[in-house]
Design a protein around this nucleic acid. Structure first.
Lengths: 176, 176
DNA sequence: CGCATCTTGTGGACGCTGTCCACATTGCTA
DNA sequence: TAGCAATGTGGACAGCGTCCACAAGATGCG
């Protein structure tokens, strides 16, 4: 349902794919990684577009909102990429933090960054911040799934938009 | 990936399935409906096991917790049923409420019931309660998906359990 | 009771998929 | 220029969902 379709789009015989990917899953994994990076890049762009110094609580909340909104927008506008991004769990596992090179541009890494910023801004105590990325991630991801492939798929756009806002303020309120 | 497998388990030739279901999707829809009812039944049982009168805020919160915990437990223990339950979005759409017969035993209906109870108990204002089922549903569903088929799939059990608790208190706190 | 009809299951076939094999073609490099 | 790695091709296989024609048992009606 994927491999032959991809090779058809590229205009090549199905077996040609096996010169580049071991099997269907490895192809999917490549798309998965690319999709995740794309989401991370869009997020970083939206976050960077928010003015305000590090340590400014208002700006930090705006950045948090930008992260959530970008996540939901990506799921809405690129449903295929979004679904594929989470289709292969072995990739981009929930590594607690790679202290390697440069800032973490993964979606989860950027969420962690803004949560740390909220701690620096004094909005969040370190105790409450601890592990907070998972409930937040769950809330936004859950809505993306429910609205994209789940029971909310056929909800009118207005309803869905309202639910999106409700969820983002739900998350923001829980941090205030 | 489903139809022939099912007929094989039943010990019958694949085409026999077409005497009972129009096609693969209709078979899936039947499982989907059954899975959803099963989840609703387990939820109702756990909710009923919570002592406390209607109007008691503490009991209402316990019931809310039972709903969330049952949801997560179901997703953990019956990953196939859980995935199938949400595979066919046209079924059990997010009908805002069917005023037909008896109490709503769907998962969403039970969540709505307990939220209404929190309003009756004075814990939640009607304004804040409005639409609140969706962020809550999203948070719990999102965690179920992330931990069941998503990036959190390979997380150690202890971590996952902690994240579950974190998410449920996250939800409860947002209503206090 | 006898027969027709409905229900359920069977066998064979089709096109689709992912996958493997052996073989051709290209282009870089020593 | 000869050799080799990379890439693509053609053919084949089993598995999938699906359709068709046919068989056998249950059911209901005269």
């Amino acid at each position: 349902m994927v491999l032959r379709e991809a090779t058809r789009i590229v205009g090549v015989v199905p077996n040609a794919a096996y010169r580049h990917f071991a099997d269907r899953d490895e192809l999917l994994a490549a798309v998965c990684t690319a999709a995740m990076r794309e989401l991370g890049d869009r997020m970083a762009a939206e976050v960077a577009a928010v003015d305000g110094e590090h340590g400014d609580p208002t700006a930090a909340f705006l950045r948090l909102g930008a992260i959530g909104a970008t996540y939901l927008k990506f799921a809405r506008e690129e449903p295929g990429l979004f679904a594929t991004a989470f289709a292969l769990p072995q990739r981009h596992a929930y590594a607690p933090a790679t202290e390697t090179a440069g800032p973490d541009r993964t979606p989860l890494g950027q969420l962690r960054t803004v949560l740390d910023e909220l701690v620096d801004a004094g909005t969040l105590t370190p105790e409450r911040r601890d592990g907070m990325e998972y409930p937040i991630w769950s809330a936004v991801h859950g809505l993306a799934v429910l609205a994209g492939q789940g029971p909310l798929r056929n909800a009118p756009d207005a309803d869905r938009q309202r639910i999106e806002e409700l969820t983002l303020t739900f998350v923001a309120n829980s941090l205030a």
